Simulated assay, not measured.
Amino acid sequence: MILQSEAATMALGKQLADILLPGDKIALTGTLGAGKTTLARGLLRGLGFEDDVPSPTFAIVQQYEPPEVRLSLAHVDFYRIEDPNEIQELGLDDILMDGAIIAEWPDRMADSFWTEGLQITLEIRNDNTRQLTWTAGPAWKDRWPII
């Protein structure tokens, strides 16, 4: 799938919010500037969040809860994680009991964590559009692709 603009990336995120369920995991892979945070912002807009959506690079986990969103969501950025043991302290399994996770730089975590999830890769093309490729686990059957 080709995303022609930042607005198209935001729109895809909003569509993704419509199908998001508790326990869902979304892994976003791509180089700096590929649109990972933009897609996450679109998802949060689709969930009803109206304020600014900062990148969680420094906070590592940015939590969003009802009533600001229709479903609890943790926006996670593993970029600064150097030791995989630090991930255990984030409480991601607890988040997944009632909510969902969208994560940037998911390669810092074991591949097995993402097996059931939606794994999205964004690549910057020469014409400045974005190429989106994906892999979806069984939990996403009949929900993805949404376009």
Rank of each mutant, 00 (worst) to 15 (best):
N128G: 11
R70T: 10
G91V: 02
P54S: 04
F78S: 00
T115Y: 14
P84F: 01
A139L: 14
E65M: 13
K14N: 09
R108G: 13
E104H: 01
L32C: 11
I2G: 05
Q15W: 04
L122C: 10
D93G: 09
L16M: 11
T31P: 12
P56S: 09
L122D: 10
M10Y: 10
T37E: 13
I19L: 11
A7I: 07
P22T: 08
L90E: 04
Y64M: 02
L39H: 02
T38L: 01
G30F: 07
L132V: 07
G33A: 08
L32T: 13
W114N: 07
E89D: 15
A8G: 10
S5K: 02
L90T: 00
E123C: 13
V69A: 10
T115P: 10
A40V: 04
T31G: 12
T129P: 03
L20P: 15
T121E: 11
L96W: 05
A103M: 09
E86I: 01
I2Q: 07
T29H: 14
G42V: 03
A8V: 02
P84E: 07
M10T: 14
E65R: 09
T37G: 08
L71T: 08
G23R: 00
L118E: 01
A103Q: 10
D142S: 14
E104A: 06
T57K: 02
L32M: 13
A8P: 11
L92C: 02
G33M: 09
V61P: 11
P56I: 03
L132K: 05
A40W: 00
K141P: 07
L44G: 08
L16S: 08
K25A: 03
Q4L: 13
A100Y: 09
K36R: 05
M1N: 08
L90D: 04
I60G: 04
E68W: 08
L44W: 14
P67L: 00
D93K: 09
I19W: 13
S112C: 02
I102D: 01
T37R: 10
I2P: 12
V76K: 02
T9G: 07
T31I: 11
Q4T: 14
E50P: 13
T38Q: 06
V61W: 05
I95S: 12
L122M: 08
R130V: 03
P145D: 00
T31D: 15
R41Q: 01
N126E: 09
G35Q: 03
D111M: 07
L21F: 14
L16I: 08
G117K: 01
F113E: 04
A59D: 14
N126L: 11
P84G: 00
D111P: 12
G30T: 03
P54I: 01
L32K: 12
D142E: 15
Q63Y: 15
P106H: 03
L96S: 06
G137N: 00
R143M: 14
L122G: 04
E65C: 03
E123H: 13
